[in-house]
Design a protein around this nucleic acid. Structure first.
Lengths: 208, 208
DNA sequence: TGTAATACCGACCAACCGGTCGCTATACAA
DNA sequence: TTGTATAGCGACCGGTTGGTCGGTATTACA
């Protein structure tokens, strides 16, 4: 096998294991030795590939976390179909994955933000960047929805984005407890209610 | 001074300092020595009053955290005035406090849940209990609102409670970043929008 | 004033932390 | 086959962790 290819394969394997452990036990609560034990690897090998634990984690963020958020929360709302339906399906799918996750420790990004906030500025910058990318993409999806006539012109796109992100991050924390499925169902029902309030209003639609 | 009174005063002082440090640096990232340094106290004194670090933290939860949540998030919505107004004011005030907090590390309860979830079942039980109390009180406030004619009869009280808790917990995490004030404003605006959708509908109110 | 309980002190412990370093094992190019 | 760069090894280091323990200082009460 090509040398650089093998190197990348090893590093990838280390990062996947690292993300899993950091997510489940927390960054500060997971020692380098823990990661190495899981990998059946030596310390020398670790520090041959990464210059520090922090550097290892930052590479995990950039290589794995960013891609994860993209796949689950950004790409699904990029289409030109009815924006509110896209958002609804996207959240539905994301939460369903969480429900079926045997061991759910909450929204990965939100967990790390909580852990690093006020403690490690360098890591926080990387995490906040992901948050920003998500926000920007949500805002433009909503504006696209307005342009395409699916969303009321007077809706504040930035406000909706902040609200949606808040709701999602919060419910993911709530769902780590017992009966995540019931909470997901109730949450999604209220989310649809909220999304409906953003629709283009017709003269007759809301008379009850 | 009475002996037991002095003991309680000392323990109270220790717990207040402990909560501050655990909140700002995280539980696992704060050593007992850190707490003792802040208190100018010895290890012997600490372990004379508390049998372990974990025990110390659980007492902090029961004595300080529970009361805090009660004061900020439960009592303000207990009245018989318009329920949705009470909720709106309660969230507004709670977030305003967060904005003015020089060093904000997010919603205390939510931070600790994130830190202990899957790592310490005993502590999690105590934290989940607070969450449950909050939820129960929100649900009964909403049902009271329905009874008093402020909220639509068909509204799912449990669903609204989960949604409101999610949104609050999420926005508190989002607000730790830059410009918390702007995010608060946008969030509250959307929250009012959502709360409005729960009101008793009249034939003319929603024609636009 | 004597005494017993409580409050507090800080040296000390084993276990663990992130990181270093001198070493070997392997793989490819000449 | 040999030389050289990369991959991987694990003992070891200084520092920190939660917790212990033998001691002293302070207090309340007889």
């Amino acid at each position: 096998m090509d040398k650089t290819l093998k190197r990348m394969a090893t590093m990838q394997r280390m990062q996947v294991t690292g993300l899993y452990l950091f997510y489940s036990k927390g960054y500060y609560n997971t020692s380098v030795d823990d990661v190495l034990k899981e990998l059946s690897m030596s310390k020398g090998a670790f520090y041959h590939h990464f210059k520090s634990k922090e550097d290892f984690f930052i590479q995990i963020i950039e290589n794995l976390l960013v891609r994860k958020i993209y796949t689950v929360l950004i790409e699904p709302i990029e289409g030109h179909e009815h924006t509110l339906d896209l958002i609804n399906s996207c959240f539905e799918d994301a939460l369903e994955t969480a429900v079926h996750n045997e061991l759910d420790y909450g929204f990965v990004l939100s967990n790390f933000i909580n852990e690093f906030n006020g403690r490690n500025e360098r890591v926080m910058k990387h995490l906040n960047n992901i948050l920003k990318v998500w926000e920007v993409n949500l805002v433009s999806a909503i504006q696209r929805g307005k342009f395409n006539g699916y969303i009321n012109r007077h809706v504040d796109a930035e406000g909706v984005a902040v609200f949606l992100m808040s709701a999602y991050m919060g419910v993911r924390t709530l769902m780590v407890e017992i009966t995540p499925s019931a909470r997901k169902y109730r949450f999604m029902s209220q989310l649809r209610n909220y999304l409906k309030s953003l629709e283009v209003k017709t003269a007759t639609a809301n008379i009850s």
